[in-house]
Every structure is written in C-alpha cells, then in structure tokens.
Design a protein around this nucleic acid. Structure first.
Lengths: 147, 147
DNA sequence: ATAATATAGTTGGACATCAAACTAATGTCA
DNA sequence: TGACATTAGTTTGATGTCCAACTATATTAT
C-alpha cells in the first residue's frame, strides 16, 4: 500500500489496487513456503512464468517481459542461477547476449506455480459470478491502458 | 508486474493489478519530479497521507496505517526526518513511544499531493462513466476483502 | 515487590529495485 | 578501415522492504 498520495476518491482505486497486490504477494509467498519452497519470492514469478512459455530468453527480453530494469534482471538471474533453477550461456553469434534457460530443477516448479495460481484466483474471486469476473478484468484493463 | 505466478486467467486480475500499481507509482514519481520534489518517493506517500489527517501518530500507528513492518517505518521516518519533512519526539508518559509530526516544510506538501492525486485519478479514469467508477471500486473492494 | 511477560521501537542482514556509470561487443559511416 | 555510435549486460550505490534478534520501558501475576 505505497500509494497514499491520494485523496479520498483515489484511495478507492489505486490504494485498493496496491493493497490487493500486497495481499496477493503474501498469499503466493505463503503457498510457496507451505510447499517447502523457501528460496523463491514472488518477485521471481515473472522469470519463471516467461521461461515456462519460452525455452530460452535473453536478459533484455526478460527485462522487457517482466517490466523491470535490466540491472534488476541481472540480480534476479544471479539469484535463481545460484539456486540452480536457471542457467545462462553466452550467445555464440552475438557475444554480448546472454541466454537464460530453466534447469531441470526449474522446470519442476511449473506444476506448483500452476496450482498456486489456481488457489490465488479462487481466493480472489470468492463470491464472484462469471459476469463480474469479466467486468472487473475489462475495467482494470481499461485503467491499465490509460497509463 | 511481479505477480507472474499466474496462469492465463489470473493474469487478467493480479497481473493487471500489479501493472496498474507500478504505473501509478511511476506517474506519481514523475509528477513529484516535475514539481521539483526530488527527494520524495511514492513509498513516502502513505506517511504524508496519514499525517495530513492526524496531527500526531506513533511509529506503531503509522506502521499499521500504511501496512508496513515497523522496521520499515523506522527507516522511512529517519529518511523524512533527515529531509526535514517530519519530526519525532518521545512520549513523556510512555517513554517507549515515539510521536511523529509534520514540520512546516512537510505541511507545505499537502497541496501538491492533492493535485497529484487529482491528476492520477483523472488519468486512471479516462473514458469512465460515474457508474463504471463505482463498479470497479466495488468489485476491487470485494477482491480486497477476500484476502 | 519481584519476576515474567508484553509492547514500542531499533538494529542488522538479506534482497528487490532503480538509475547512472561503466565494459564489451557490434554496427555504421565517412 | 578506423572513428563514432549503438546495444547487451554488469557494477555500484542508494533506498524500501521484510524478518529475526535485540533494547528499553511498561504491565501483570504471583
């Protein structure tokens, strides 16, 4: 909830959005811990998410996809590499480029991530009709595109 | 967008929420910079927000209000104190307690914050009817309460 | 009243994050 | 071809954040 630069009305949008994000992160962290996965934080989710769908990504691609600075990606990749979840190798053609791939250990997390996602969604949408889910996503998409 | 521990559907809620929060933060930061306020970050907004409305708060109250760890509040208060925006004093009755107040310099920011809030809201809600604004806030409130 | 417990806040360590400065490799252009 | 510019990624330094351990003060229970 770091968005308190807001008046009464803004509080009902941006502060809500911030609070939900914080709570979702905490939920994900709890779920990971409950599965004995103690070395991964929500911030790493983006890296895994995109590597599950792309067998190979460069640092720059990853930075763009998770919308983080390239220096942030350097440190995330170092962390996850040190833990054995991903590996990096220099591109043979363009030697400036670093390619990132999941290791076997990394790929094993996919099922856990999917399950946690399902639980997160279930929790978030308690009491929602299909129509309401659709509406909230549509409205949030419009807010997102307004920036 | 640190919530990529998600499948296709979740992406449409939690990732959206994360993306919006990030963008709102960036917007606020830009607006602050544009006013020549370069030493304040979005994370400080919560402290100001609550101090505009409460002339005096303890560290613990602040921590609860902005939903951050008390040690985080220690460092935020140190930062803002060093910049001259707030001041702390020990409570005479219960000497464990620290009271936080805005300085004159801190109070001067209120108008800027209010203006930034208005602009942020205007931007977020471009194209929204009053009814849609009401709906999105209601639905988000329900999601928030589901956690 | 004294010992045990609880509470307020700080400290230390880890890490995510960004911006700015940097290095290394590639590309361009005269 | 050689100088300049661009691009990929790393390094450095600052800050926000949490947790766990700690200090100091206050409260409670025996």
């Amino acid at each position: 909830m770091s968005n308190y630069i807001i008046n009464m009305e803004t509080e009902h949008l941006i502060a809500l959005v911030s609070a939900i994000r914080d709570k979702a992160n905490r939920f994900i962290f709890e779920q990971l811990k409950a599965r004995g996965i103690k070395d991964i934080a929500p911030a790493h989710g983006g890296v895994f998410f995109h590597l599950f769908r792309n067998s190979e990504l460069t640092m720059g691609e990853l930075a763009r996809l998770i919308d983080r600075d390239k220096s942030t990606v350097t440190s995330l990749v170092e962390k996850l590499g040190g833990l054995g979840y991903i590996k990096r190798e220099r591109d043979a053609v363009d030697r400036r480029v670093t390619k990132i791939r999941l290791t076997q250990k990394g790929r094993l997390l996919e099922a856990d991530f999917e399950d946690i996602s399902r639980r997160l969604l279930s929790k978030a949408y308690v009491g929602f009709s299909d129509k309401e889910m659709e509406v909230i996503v549509k409205l949030l998409t419009r807010v997102n595109n307004n920036f």
